[in-house]
Amino acid sequence: MKILIELTVNEELCRLEVEPQQTLLEVLREALHLTGTKEGCGLGDCGTCMVLIDGKPVNACLMLALDAQRHQITTIEGLDNRGGLHPLQQSFIDAGAVQCGFCTPGMILSAKALLDINPRAGKEEIKKTLSGVLCRCGSYPKVIEAVLAAGEKMKGGH
């Protein structure tokens, strides 16, 4: 049973046919070729499939594509939409918060959701908010540094 749906991904309206059982993650990666959103477990445990729905982080592997209609979807590919890098992206590079990079999109998007609400978020709040994204390389300390640094830039009115 194919259903025609409309998704707004990174401010762009996409019309496509999906099966009800297709997750948002499958549609983003396979139909829309936005492979920056990763699949690390498919069960909501690792956070590598993080996307923002109306600015809030969700696990795209646990959301049916159908349910993503009528929402604003942001993937990692949408962060440097307007040319330059998002302050978080630059901070991740500068602070050395990237290792193998597989968790990086999920980390950056989770952090964006936090800093958009509270660019002054401190270390403990960052830890709590990002705890749903696992990183086996152990980039956590430098991710925290990067988010703090990006917060500094963002509260300066970026």
Partner: peptide
């Protein structure tokens, strides 16, 4: 309960 992203769903 769960992680922040799970709590959003």
């Amino acid at each position: 309960l769960g992680s922040p992203s799970i709590r959003n769903l």
